Measured scan of single mutants.
Amino acid sequence: MDTYKLILNGKTLKGETTTEAVDAATAEKVFKHYANEHGVHGHWTYDPETKTFTSTE
């Protein structure tokens, strides 16, 4: 398992979190669920070199 990072740049919520996942697709599902639960619906990007997802509203 690898550690993946999420950076949230929402209108009402900003911050970072991490998750352990078997691959990027699994981490993306976890992070999108997390963002949706916190009302963040933004544009998603992923940097495979740093294993970092960013959601920007």
Rank of each mutant, 00 (worst) to 15 (best):
residue 20 E to R: 14
residue 55 S to W: 13
residue 22 V to N: 09
residue 43 H to V: 15
residue 31 F to Q: 00
residue 50 T to F: 06
residue 33 H to L: 14
residue 53 F to W: 05
residue 8 L to T: 04
residue 32 K to N: 05
residue 11 K to T: 12
residue 16 E to S: 10
residue 11 K to Y: 11
residue 50 T to K: 07
residue 34 Y to H: 04
residue 17 T to V: 15
residue 21 A to E: 03
residue 31 F to L: 07
residue 15 G to P: 04
residue 6 L to G: 02
residue 12 T to S: 11
residue 9 N to W: 13
residue 13 L to K: 10
residue 43 H to M: 13
residue 53 F to P: 00
residue 44 W to Y: 03
residue 42 G to Q: 03
residue 33 H to N: 13
residue 2 D to W: 12
residue 3 T to F: 07
residue 40 V to W: 13
residue 9 N to F: 11
residue 35 A to W: 02
residue 22 V to K: 13
residue 28 E to S: 06
residue 26 T to R: 05
residue 31 F to K: 00
residue 18 T to D: 04
residue 35 A to V: 08
residue 29 K to E: 10
residue 57 E to W: 07
residue 33 H to W: 11
residue 12 T to D: 11
residue 12 T to W: 14
residue 47 D to G: 01
residue 34 Y to I: 07
residue 22 V to R: 13
residue 56 T to N: 09
residue 47 D to N: 11
residue 50 T to W: 05
residue 36 N to W: 14
residue 10 G to V: 04
residue 5 K to E: 03
residue 51 K to G: 02
residue 46 Y to V: 00
residue 19 T to H: 07
residue 37 E to W: 08
residue 12 T to K: 10
residue 8 L to Q: 01
residue 19 T to Q: 05
residue 23 D to R: 02
residue 23 D to Q: 02
residue 30 V to S: 06
residue 6 L to I: 03
residue 43 H to F: 14
residue 51 K to Y: 06
residue 17 T to D: 02
residue 9 N to T: 08
residue 20 E to I: 13
residue 9 N to I: 15
residue 57 E to I: 05
residue 19 T to M: 12
residue 11 K to G: 08
residue 26 T to C: 07
residue 35 A to E: 06
residue 32 K to G: 03
residue 14 K to Q: 13
residue 57 E to M: 05
residue 46 Y to A: 00
residue 23 D to I: 02
residue 20 E to L: 15
residue 21 A to F: 04
residue 40 V to K: 03
residue 48 P to W: 07
residue 7 I to A: 03
residue 26 T to S: 13
residue 56 T to Q: 08
residue 21 A to K: 01
residue 3 T to L: 12
residue 15 G to C: 15
residue 50 T to A: 06
residue 20 E to F: 12
residue 2 D to H: 15
residue 24 A to G: 04
residue 32 K to V: 07
residue 17 T to A: 11
residue 39 G to I: 04
residue 15 G to S: 14
residue 53 F to C: 01
residue 16 E to A: 09
residue 37 E to D: 09
residue 36 N to Q: 14
residue 34 Y to P: 01
residue 5 K to V: 09
residue 3 T to E: 08
residue 31 F to M: 03
residue 44 W to L: 08
residue 47 D to Q: 06
residue 49 E to N: 11
residue 15 G to E: 12
residue 48 P to C: 07
residue 55 S to A: 15
residue 40 V to Q: 04
residue 20 E to D: 10
residue 51 K to N: 05
residue 32 K to E: 05
residue 6 L to S: 02
residue 25 A to E: 12
residue 13 L to M: 14
residue 40 V to G: 03
residue 18 T to K: 07
residue 49 E to H: 11
residue 25 A to M: 10
residue 9 N to D: 11
residue 55 S to H: 09
residue 5 K to F: 12
residue 21 A to N: 02
residue 35 A to Y: 03
residue 10 G to H: 13
residue 18 T to Q: 09
residue 11 K to D: 09
residue 33 H to P: 02
residue 2 D to K: 14
residue 11 K to A: 12
residue 4 Y to C: 04
residue 28 E to C: 15
residue 23 D to Y: 02
residue 52 T to R: 02
residue 54 T to V: 08
residue 2 D to G: 09
residue 38 H to M: 15
residue 3 T to N: 05
residue 27 A to G: 01
residue 12 T to R: 09
residue 7 I to W: 03
residue 9 N to A: 08
residue 15 G to Q: 14
residue 38 H to S: 07
residue 49 E to K: 12
residue 40 V to M: 08
residue 57 E to G: 04
residue 17 T to G: 04
residue 24 A to Q: 09
residue 42 G to R: 03
residue 38 H to L: 15
residue 48 P to I: 08
residue 17 T to F: 15
residue 37 E to V: 13
residue 20 E to M: 14
residue 52 T to C: 04
residue 38 H to P: 01
residue 51 K to P: 00
residue 4 Y to P: 02
residue 48 P to Y: 06
residue 32 K to R: 15
residue 35 A to N: 02
residue 47 D to S: 07
residue 49 E to T: 12
residue 42 G to V: 05
residue 36 N to A: 15
residue 30 V to R: 09
residue 33 H to Q: 15
residue 39 G to H: 06
residue 25 A to P: 08
residue 12 T to V: 11
residue 29 K to R: 13
residue 33 H to I: 15
residue 56 T to W: 10
residue 28 E to L: 15
residue 24 A to E: 07
residue 51 K to W: 04
residue 20 E to Y: 12
residue 30 V to Q: 09
residue 23 D to A: 03
residue 18 T to P: 01
residue 9 N to L: 13
residue 6 L to Y: 03
residue 7 I to D: 03
residue 44 W to D: 00
residue 8 L to P: 00
residue 44 W to V: 04
residue 37 E to Q: 13
residue 49 E to V: 11
residue 36 N to T: 13
residue 31 F to S: 00
residue 11 K to F: 14
residue 27 A to R: 01
residue 27 A to C: 02
residue 33 H to T: 13
residue 43 H to R: 12
residue 2 D to S: 14
residue 8 L to F: 11
residue 48 P to L: 06
residue 23 D to F: 02
residue 31 F to E: 00
residue 18 T to W: 14
residue 6 L to N: 02
residue 19 T to A: 07
residue 42 G to F: 06
residue 1 M to G: 09
residue 44 W to A: 01
residue 49 E to D: 13
residue 10 G to S: 08
residue 38 H to D: 02
residue 25 A to W: 10
residue 24 A to M: 11
residue 20 E to H: 10
residue 5 K to A: 04
residue 10 G to Q: 04
residue 12 T to Q: 10
residue 8 L to N: 00
residue 56 T to E: 10
residue 39 G to Q: 07
residue 47 D to Y: 06
residue 37 E to T: 13
residue 15 G to V: 15
residue 34 Y to F: 11
residue 33 H to K: 15
residue 52 T to E: 04
residue 25 A to Q: 11
residue 38 H to W: 10
residue 54 T to I: 08
residue 43 H to N: 13
residue 25 A to K: 11
residue 8 L to Y: 11
residue 49 E to Y: 11
residue 33 H to R: 14
residue 12 T to P: 03
residue 39 G to E: 05
residue 28 E to F: 15
residue 39 G to V: 03
residue 25 A to N: 08
residue 39 G to R: 05
residue 36 N to H: 14
residue 20 E to Q: 14
residue 48 P to H: 08
residue 57 E to V: 06
residue 24 A to D: 04
residue 8 L to I: 12
residue 42 G to C: 04
residue 21 A to R: 02
residue 36 N to Y: 14
residue 32 K to D: 02
residue 2 D to A: 13
residue 56 T to G: 05
residue 1 M to F: 12
residue 10 G to R: 03
residue 4 Y to D: 02
residue 53 F to D: 00
residue 46 Y to Q: 00
residue 54 T to C: 08
residue 13 L to V: 14
residue 51 K to L: 10
residue 2 D to R: 11
residue 4 Y to K: 02
residue 26 T to Q: 12
residue 11 K to E: 10
residue 28 E to Y: 15
residue 37 E to F: 11
residue 46 Y to S: 00
